Amino acid sequence: MTEQRQHGLAGIILAGGRSRRMGQDKASLEWEGRPMLDVIAESIGQRCSPVLVAAPASSQAFAELGPDSELTWVTDEQVGTGPLGGIVAALSAAKDAGAAAAFVCATDLPLVSADLIDELLRALTGSPDVVIAHEGGRDHPLAGIYRVRALPALEELVAQGELLMTNALDAVVTHRVGVSDPRWLTNVDAPEDLHRLRELA
């Protein structure tokens, strides 16, 4: 597929989680013969530039993949601030790189597609600071587009010790979008999830 990067749209992959249920780092899990992180980066890189990986320098993901990776790592997130801290650190780096917004996704969405980004972009008009996927009656804040103008509000929440993404979405203008293919949002939290997804694929 010919790459069609969107002007001013960065990509952010959150890879700082501890992967307790999986028992090993999700970013380095094998998917299609490669680390899952690389597969996701290739998919979103069709629309996003640069693609940034947010993970503390102390994380397993950075230790295993960072030194040999060609991806740009953002390692200055505040430890213990969860996904919101990773978003804030990487969104700030995206702003410094000249991006107006960034597509944010978790590192456990191996089926994420550039088509998902297209659907979210179509809804990113007017007032929304954030556009997220909504499927099955559930928000997916780690599959969404965040404008850099949301940074001040999100930074303030991190400074206050806020960890809940639901509260972060309430603090900014958020628009929810039903997606045409729910498979894009399939995440793998445990070994059985990965096994089942491999069988389906």
Score class of each variant (00 low, 15 high):
65 L>P: 06
106 A>Q: 08
145 I>F: 06
182 P>H: 04
195 H>W: 06
100 A>G: 15
161 G>D: 15
115 D>E: 11
163 L>K: 03
36 M>E: 12
58 S>D: 12
73 W>D: 15
35 P>E: 07
63 A>K: 03
94 A>N: 11
154 L>D: 07
121 L>K: 01
43 S>D: 13
172 V>Y: 01
110 P>E: 15
197 L>Q: 11
97 A>I: 06
74 V>N: 05
48 C>Q: 07
38 D>F: 05
87 I>V: 08
156 E>Y: 02
11 G>C: 11
124 L>Y: 00
88 V>Y: 01
77 E>W: 00
147 R>N: 12
3 E>S: 09
150 A>W: 07
132 I>G: 11
38 D>V: 04
32 E>D: 15
151 L>K: 06
104 V>F: 02
98 G>R: 03
139 D>W: 05
134 H>G: 07
98 G>E: 10
27 A>S: 13
200 L>Y: 01
167 N>G: 12
120 L>N: 06
50 P>V: 01
24 Q>V: 07
109 L>Y: 02
179 V>I: 15
6 Q>Y: 03
32 E>S: 09
69 S>H: 05
136 G>V: 03
65 L>K: 00
81 T>N: 12
191 P>C: 12
44 I>L: 10
137 G>N: 09
52 L>W: 02
125 T>D: 15
151 L>N: 08
127 S>N: 10
92 S>V: 02
27 A>K: 05
87 I>G: 11
71 L>W: 05
138 R>K: 14
108 D>W: 11
124 L>I: 00
2 T>R: 01
4 Q>S: 13
156 E>V: 00
62 F>T: 02
41 A>M: 12
64 E>F: 01
51 V>I: 02
190 A>P: 11
121 L>A: 10
7 H>V: 04
119 E>C: 04
18 R>P: 06
79 V>R: 01
13 I>D: 12
68 D>H: 10
120 L>Y: 03
86 G>M: 09
168 A>C: 06
70 E>W: 01
142 L>V: 01
130 V>K: 04
56 P>F: 01
191 P>S: 07
143 A>C: 14
65 L>C: 09
4 Q>D: 12
68 D>S: 13
49 S>H: 13
187 N>R: 03
61 A>K: 10
160 Q>F: 04
53 V>A: 05
179 V>G: 01
143 A>H: 04
75 T>R: 12
103 F>Y: 06
196 R>P: 11
137 G>C: 09
188 V>R: 08
73 W>Q: 12
142 L>N: 05
91 L>Y: 05
63 A>Y: 08
114 A>I: 02
153 A>L: 13
112 V>M: 05
141 P>Q: 03
69 S>I: 04
191 P>R: 00
131 V>S: 08
193 D>H: 13
71 L>R: 03
35 P>S: 00
9 L>A: 09
191 P>K: 00
53 V>M: 08
144 G>A: 13
62 F>N: 04
31 W>T: 06
32 E>G: 08
174 T>V: 08
199 E>N: 10
85 G>A: 13
